[in-house]
């Protein structure tokens, strides 16, 4: 009993961890399934079919391609815009600061369905046809705030004395920015960009409001397929993304931890 009490938080933590990971494990396991009918819900037979032919279902790979393309462009643009705003907020005094903060906060405090529908009304009112361009505009819009928040934290934690030291050591403001400030803020910018990419890649609701039948992203493809039965290839792509993310983030963490250990 005493043992359980002492380790209660560990036990609960591990159980919750299991809750978080269970669906991912199911997705991976069922990527090796060969379902009897359309529905990949019941286990039938082990098979590598989907893995050897990931594009086997019409439209799936083009939708992944479109999501990657939109995710990449949206995260790059949002990162540039957001980083600039973060520097202004973290480094400068100016009038209209609280208004700026409000404007950054609002998109994060607005449900996707509201943002998606309001953009749609704007596009309709202005006669702009839905498509890749409108999806891209929407994605950049909701990613900017997240980039600002991520980068601002990093900028704010930067010691202003370091820039003074650079100036003292003969670096002009531009040189100080490139040689000192930017390298130090870079991890925050990278984190913001990664977050923006995953938000964009994963978005269904806003995208759905602003897409056309010819601009089907990966989440839209899944949604459409979910009505009839999701092809096993979807599980394959989901597994690849999950394992890839674990691999990349894990690698970054290990490198970071090693550097930290050297430091300690």
């Amino acid at each position: 009993m005493a043992w359980i009490r002492r380790h209660l938080v560990v036990i609960i933590g591990l159980l919750v961890m299991g809750y978080i990971l269970l669906p991912n494990l199911v997705v991976i396991a069922y990527s090796f399934n060969r379902p009897r009918g359309h529905l990949n819900i019941q286990w039938s037979r082990f098979s590598f079919d989907a893995w050897t032919n990931p594009c086997g279902t019409p439209g799936i790979c083009s939708s992944v391609g479109l999501s990657l393309k939109i995710g990449l462009i949206a995260s790059i643009v949002a990162t540039i815009l957001g980083t600039m705003v973060a520097f202004a907020l973290g480094r400068h005094r100016f009038r209209g600061r609280s208004l700026t903060n409000l404007l950054i906060f609002m998109p994060m405090a607005t449900p996707e369905v509201v943002m998606g529908s309001s953009l749609l009304t704007l596009f309709i009112a202005m006669g702009i046809p839905s498509g890749q361009m409108t999806i891209l505009i929407a994605h950049i819009m909701f990613c900017v705030s997240f980039v600002v928040v991520t980068v601002k934290a990093r900028v704010a934690s930067l010691d202003p004395k370091l820039e003074e030291a650079a100036a003292d050591l003969y670096a002009s403001p531009a040189q100080a920015f490139w040689r000192v400030t930017l390298p130090l803020v870079a991890p925050g910018i990278a984190a913001g960009a990664l977050l923006a990419f995953s938000l964009s890649f994963d978005d269904y609701i806003i995208t759905n409001f602003n897409a056309s039948p010819t601009s089907v992203t990966f989440p839209m493809f899944i949604w459409g397929a979910a009505q009839r039965g999701v092809p096993v290839q979807v599980n394959v792509i989901g597994s690849v993304m999950f394992l890839g993310a674990v691999g990349i983030v894990g690698f970054a963490q290990i490198v970071g931890a090693r550097r930290k250990r050297e430091v300690a």
Binding site: D159, K161, L162, E164, A165, A166, V180, L184
Partner: peptide, 8 residues
Amino acid sequence: FQSYALFP
């Protein structure tokens, strides 16, 4: 500098 301000 007082805080040294070494570039980390």
